[in-house]
Write a protein that binds this DNA or RNA. Structure first.
Lengths: 340, 340
DNA sequence: GCTAAAATAGAAAGCGATTTCTGTGTGATA
DNA sequence: TATCACACAGAAATCGCTTTCTATTTTAGC
């Protein structure tokens, strides 16, 4: 491929008959330049299709207007929606972002982050659902060099900003809601290895225990898997369990599992919410695409993303690191009803 | 936030007691360096946590290992899945990528692209469903400076690589499949303003005409909208139309619409596929998450993405631009059956 | 042992910008 | 009219790296 060389500031200067300093000044508009010189330069710029080289500029100014984003992957809409929020906020501030997928692998996560540092990003947003994966040391050293924002993990590394929401509270709210509908026999479904699941299970145990109705066999762990395959795992497991355990409600750790539960019920000929109620978590778009639409606890991924990005940019500009907790709001839809 | 300054090559050189050239050489390993010097340098590097500044390197070598990606947005899983494929391929070659969302707005698309050029990306992948949006001139000038790959539009700009698949053929295959199942009364549902929809409608018209059963009222245009709201638009429109028009099958331009059709049928108390068959297009993950799972025409978004990325990298390394057409494969699932 | 070739290392130029430091004209002020 | 401030523009240093171009060792070949 025959790539034409980009015009540089020197070319523009030559064409306009001025020094490079002057060109730089009209481009940046931070220094007085006489009107007609300015115009001559502008003409040269547009006739040469000149676009200033951001890398050179950033090298010189030791600033960077790109941030890095590390997520497990995009096969799970959760992350796609978060990124949507990041993109939105980031663009408004004239930043760009580099996206990396770490596939839930701590090795890849570290590599990704090093690559971002090497690329001189001015800040990094990390979503890493499983914080046991990561080395605190690694992040402590990292945050000394570049502002960091975590989304939705349970990181206590000092100096690291955080945005998430209180999932323990959210789970309690979900359980209370179900309980208020008259449900006592509530199953809990979770996946393997995630802080989020652990927190939610804790909330479930406490709640059920307080109600005197905790049953170990009501707790279902469908194992690993982070993408859409979760749906089928949940469905398969539940299809066998529901007839035997006869819960009146199923409280799921995320919407994917809830869809799996819904599909299991359909296959079993159970009517939702008449025969059984299903509660999701997250409010990914999928939850309102299926029929009936799933009642769920909103995490507002877009907000998660845009808040993280805004916070990061604040930090980049020297702001204090902080922790932002978003509100839990229960989205009542069609998969929950009163217990018969 | 108190950001520690990154160690530079000069710091390393000083610490190791060698010249910067030597440090550069052990980092890049492209020039002989004595074993013990090498070790001294390596020690200095790790003790200083030195990470070479990619921007400086790229400025010097006039190479860049980041590419740019422009998509309409991520609220539609189609694009998320494509990006997943891009990420995968790109990472394997040591590249990074900048992601931009253009929201189907030609202005934003051009801005995004200029921002990418300014950031010195070595190539750009563009997904722009509506090619009427774009200015051919703009892209013609662009491709003279940087390799370009389009995904899934109908661009005929010379020198621009392309990966997509023959949607006309795909639509024909879908229709033939439905026809083979005995369906004659086949509705067609599309959205507004997209080359892809136009192509598919053309295929539909030709097919139905050839069968002598083209009916204008069987063609439904649900209007604009690119995200998940498509599902409800399709559902709402179809809920009124199906009882009146009594089609035995519905052929949709994408899976979102198919899910909408499915939901409409559920609400109307129609059993799918017993009473009516539904056919999607794309094979986004949603299509196999709903119950019953949707029969669809696979576009293999992951392949679309990874092929585009590989092709782009090939072009960056000097390869000829080319057009790659992926195979259409019909994924027979649970929403289609023989016509009664 | 002597010379040619290879291995090894430093100095310095250059990548494309920004910005400080200087130096001019010019209009306003005294 | 002399002076001062300011508007305007260029020269040159600098950012962190790679890569010639040189210069010095080693090593090899005979």
């Amino acid at each position: 491929m025959d790539v034409k060389k980009q015009a540089t500031i020197v070319d523009v200067a030559k064409k306009a008959g001025v020094s490079v300093a002057t060109v730089s000044r009209v481009v940046n508009g931070n220094y007085p330049v006489k009107q007609d010189t300015k115009e001559r330069v502008k003409e040269a710029i547009s006739s040469l299709n000149y676009v200033p080289n951001v890398q050179a500029r950033e090298l010189n100014t030791r600033k960077s207007s790109t941030i890095g984003v590390v997520v497990p992957g995009l096969h799970n809409m959760f992350f796609a929606e978060v990124i949507d929020g990041i993109e939105d906020a980031v663009r408004q501030d004239g930043f760009s972002f580099l996206l990396n997928c770490a596939k839930n692998d701590p090795m890849q996560e570290m590599n990704a982050i090093n690559a971002l540092v090497a690329r001189n990003v001015s800040g990094i947003i990390v979503i890493s659902p499983n914080t046991k994966n990561i080395s605190e040391r690694f992040y402590e050293e990292l945050v000394a060099r570049v502002p960091l924002v975590f989304i939705n993990g349970y990181h206590r590394i000092k100096g690291v900003s955080y945005v998430g929401n209180d999932e323990k509270l959210g789970s309690q709210m979900a359980l209370e809601y179900l309980s208020g509908l008259g449900h006592k026999d509530i199953m809990f479904v979770r996946g393997a290895k995630s802080d989020s699941y652990d927190i939610k299970e804790e909330a479930y145990r406490q709640f059920m225990e307080a109600n005197g109705s905790l049953r170990e066999d009501y707790i279902l762990n469908i194992g690993e898997g982070n993408g859409v395959e979760t749906v089928d795992s949940a469905m398969n497991a539940l299809q066998g369990l529901i007839p035997r355990l006869k819960p009146t409600a199923i409280c799921c750790c995320n919407d994917l599992m809830a869809v799996g539960a819904l599909n299991a019920c359909k296959r079993l000929g159970l009517s939702v919410p008449k025969d059984i109620s299903i509660m999701g978590y997250d409010n990914i778009s999928l939850s309102r695409l299926v029929e009936p639409k799933i009642t769920t606890m909103d995490q507002n991924m877009f907000q998660l993303g845009s808040n993280a990005a805004k916070l990061l940019i604040e930090n980049i500009h020297g702001g204090q690191s902080k922790r932002i907790m978003l509100d839990n709001v229960l989205i009542e839809r069609e998969t929950t009803g009163i217990s018969m």
